[in-house]
Design a protein around this nucleic acid. Structure first.
Lengths: 333, 333
DNA sequence: TTGTAGGCGTTATCAT
DNA sequence: ATGATAACGCCTACAA
């Protein structure tokens, strides 16, 4: 295979110096129209493509924005990534993804890879990186953190309003008339899960309802854990008319358990999620849930990074959670 | 912000030449233990990280494998990507993703970006790139194409057995006793959709059943198109006892339409998908579908690229489709 | 406006 | 085994 042409090749072909070629490529300096035309002609005659690696070295910037995410096959992270992707599209910067697979060691490795690749900025989506590590990186380069709130780095964080969202969700069920409301928590080692749990508890208290431990089961954010948690709830044999799951995926799992046991949703049991994954609109019945604005968060994060890269304040918005009312909830009968 | 240390810095700190530092970094040449130790010490004293951009320029390879995909928030592509990701993990090569968003122009742009970034190999996931364009790239560098079959490039393609899978699916429904089987096709401008449609038709014919145009509705692979196609079928008022959708997503959509119309699945209507998205196991009821081995295909593609990169035959496997029988199908009543 | 001459951080080829 | 030295492809002062 012949080696791809370089600016020297097209310089020769166009009878100009390499610097002139570079100039028409970058537009940094005016170039005489005829020379410019010659260069352009040579460029597509030889099918020249600039080598971004070399350019990155020379310029000291890669035009890449690292996105530290957890998995390529997660709708949660996928919608965030899609937001980032679409906002960056057409611009000068491009996203480069690295996944942590929900494992700290892999996440650290992924971060290192991104840094070694000389990304110009970093968007961190959730994950378990220690606050200190994130602060350390943020001292070196523009960083935006989504779905977390790092003390001392608030301006660059786009946290999730877990507490507020869970409070609203629970309150909604209460207002429908439910009194025995179960909760399937997320992994309680993760702040989001705890905050949502707290929101659930507070909403109950504010309504003068007791918090009944037997109505609470711990999950792990996965569908399968939702299946199991719902099984636990059902087997306890305690009365309940609604289940509020810590995220949509666990709600799907719980839904499956209910289906297997012949429990009708929403007639026998209301079901509520958290996240508003795109697929929740197509669940059976469509899932009532807490909207998380993940796509929008991705867009905002991308915009924030671009602002940081141009030395402006990141100016991150905050998304107040709201409910997406669908057919999986109804008054108790 | 202080500039990150280079090998020169640690060379100075360790009283050796830059080349020696490079040697301990790459392990290309033996280095005296004490000098080696000094270098290593300096490396983590100064928190040195090799600059992969510079290394890429010098070595003439980026150690990156481009993955041309369509969307970051698609389970279909996500599971493929996850397979690639996991197989590459820990190895010398890393994936770099670029998305086409199902638009040819963006896909071409994405491909160019990958090439300009000097990826050492390319995995193309589905998409609409003209065969010629793919062949042209394949002439320049290792390429694996998943979910498509490019004439003249068969050894590097990992196609989907659409025809066979659809045939099996339809045959399964027939064997259950169904006679009036509807089909929601994918976008018929895409070969996969046509092949699945053909498989459906042939299975009917082989069973001595007529192909009834009024049982066929065209979709576009999306949930929403499934909703609409199912609506069309229902509104035609023709008798049917089963629906075979061209993919899982359209099956979800169809499921929603059936739900809205109070049609029970599988009691009143059997429903079948194609792809076996991970979420299909948690649908209500769990969806019977054609297993597509997307994760495995991703793994195989990654392995194929690595083999090509080391000048071996790609040696791609072929996955015979099989059925994943779940509760959304039953004999007609 | 244009060309020449470094330099970006690393690797690889030479000698030593 | 080790250290200069010359690339890698592009960019950017600096000169002209």
């Amino acid at each position: 295979m012949p080696k791809p042409p370089t600016i020297h090749d097209i310089a020769k072909a166009a009878n100009v110096s390499p610097s002139t070629v570079s100039r028409v490529l970058t537009g940094s300096t005016p170039v005489t129209p005829d020379k410019r035309a010659a260069v352009l002609a040579a460029i597509d005659a030889l099918k020249f493509k600039p080598n971004l690696v070399a350019r990155g070295l020379a310029r000291g910037q890669s035009m890449a924005i690292g996105v530290l995410t957890q998995s390529m096959s997660s709708l949660f992270f996928g919608e965030l990534a899609q937001g980032i992707d679409s906002h960056l599209r057409g611009g000068a910067y491009h996203p480069v993804y690295a996944t942590g697979q929900w494992q700290l060691d892999e996440e650290i490795e992924a971060l290192h890879l991104l840094l070694e690749r000389q990304v110009d900025g970093l968007i961190i989506l959730s994950g378990g990186m220690p606050d200190n590590a994130i602060r350390a990186v943020a001292a070196q380069m523009p960083v935006i953190v989504v779905t977390r709130s790092i003390p001392g780095l608030e301006a660059q964080c786009l946290p999730t309003e877990n507490y507020q969202g869970a409070y609203q969700a629970t309150r909604y069920l209460i207002e429908l008339g439910h009194r025995r409301i179960a909760h399937i928590t997320g992994l309680l080692t993760i702040p989001d899960a705890v905050e949502r749990y707290n929101g659930y508890c507070q909403a109950l208290r504010d309504a003068g309802l007791e918090i009944d431990e037997s109505l609470i089961a711990e999950g792990a954010f996965t569908e399968e854990s939702g299946v199991q948690a719902a099984d636990v709830l059902l087997q306890r044999g305690v009365a309940m008319t609604a289940i509020f799951a810590g995220n949509d995926q666990m709600a799907y799992g719980a839904r499956l358990t209910l289906y297997r046991h012949g429990v009708q949703v929403p007639d026998d049991m209301s079901l509520m999620g958290f996240d508003n994954l795109s697929s929740s609109a197509y669940a059976t019945p469509p899932l009532t849930t807490v909207r998380q604005y993940m796509y929008e968060a991705g867009v905002a994060a991308a915009e924030g990074i671009l602002r940081l890269l141009s030395d402006q304040a990141p100016n991150l918005p905050s998304f107040a959670p709201d409910l997406v009312i669908r057919a999986s909830t109804a008054p108790p009968r």
